[in-house]
């Protein structure tokens, strides 16, 4: 563990003056770690991510982030029929001179990246014809090819089926362990965060947040406060090891769930 890749202090943002989305957030992301951002809908996860990207200026506080960033947006749409190869090559923008086009080196790197994610056969296919999982992989390839040190992923698993979710989580771990990349991702699934993240930040409310190691931060109490749903942490045997995972207790018809919300509101 060395110097932080991202450090922010007293961070806050509001779209309407005085109506803070979040306020006074401080945290650090260290080199090579996987960092998860969790929060209910509308708590400002994407806003925070954009601020960390440098694409938005925060209203308060400061962000220190000086490494090259690769970004994998949540919804990826393009207006033209670019091929997957074209998309990946755009990741090389920083390496390609203002007046030049991708060289053979760039193309080789792009093919290598596509191959690595197992989608080299899609290179000449129009990007928008790919399935959600395939697109995500192509964009991963693009992030890798850009030789970014920090990857920011906005809900990388949200639109995918279970198999693809597992595959993406696997890639997050591999990119961090093998390539030494720092990965920050947002998610709605605390199970994913527990599985791959080293550290996690839980956005509980405007000025309330929890930040720490994933194991500590993703406690049952914190998750209850976050989602107002009972989530149990269980340890199960898997492939000869004890693995900790989260189980969400969905109890339809139980007045407790809605009742709890009322209690929260009166606090």
């Amino acid at each position: 563990m060395t110097d932080p890749v991202i450090a922010f202090k007293g961070l806050g943002h509001a779209y309407q003056p005085g109506d803070w989305v979040f306020r006074d957030y401080s945290a650090q992301v260290k080199r090579g770690e996987v960092f998860a951002l969790l929060g209910p809908n509308g708590c400002g996860k994407t806003t925070l991510l954009k601020i960390l990207l440098g694409a938005m200026k925060p209203l308060a506080g400061s962000v220190h982030q000086h490494v090259s960033v690769g970004f994998v947006p949540q919804i990826f749409q393009v207006s033209f029929d670019y091929t997957s190869l074209d998309m990946v090559l755009m990741g090389r923008a920083r390496k390609i001179g203002l007046f030049s086009t991708p060289t053979q080196t760039d193309r080789d790197a792009a093919y290598a990246a596509l191959e690595r994610f197992g989608v080299a056969d899609l290179a000449q296919r129009p990007f928008h014809e790919l399935s959600g999982g395939q697109r995500q992989l192509v964009i991963f390839a693009r992030a890798v090819v850009s030789e970014a040190e920090l990857l920011l992923l906005d809900e990388p698993t949200s639109a995918l089926d279970l198999r693809n979710q597992a595959m993406i989580l696997d890639w997050i771990t591999r990119l961090s362990r093998h390539d030494g990349l720092t990965v920050v991702f947002t998610t709605h699934n605390p199970q994913h965060a527990l599985a791959v993240a080293d550290n996690a930040l839980l956005m509980l409310g405007q000025e309330r947040y929890v930040c720490g190691t994933a194991r500590e931060a993703l406690s049952e109490d914190n998750l209850k406060a976050l989602y107002c749903v009972d989530i149990r942490r269980v340890s199960i045997g898997y492939m000869g090891k004890q693995v900790e995972t989260l189980v969400t207790v969905f109890a339809p018809g139980d007045d407790e769930i809605t009742g709890r919300e009322k209690k929260n509101a009166s606090e």
Partner: peptide, 16 residues
């Protein structure tokens, strides 16, 4: 499968 890499030399020359 389309894994053959098209020759980019002609392309780049033509563009330039």
């Amino acid at each position: 499968m389309m894994s053959s890499k098209p020759n980019s030399f002609l392309q780049n020359t033509a563009e330039l």
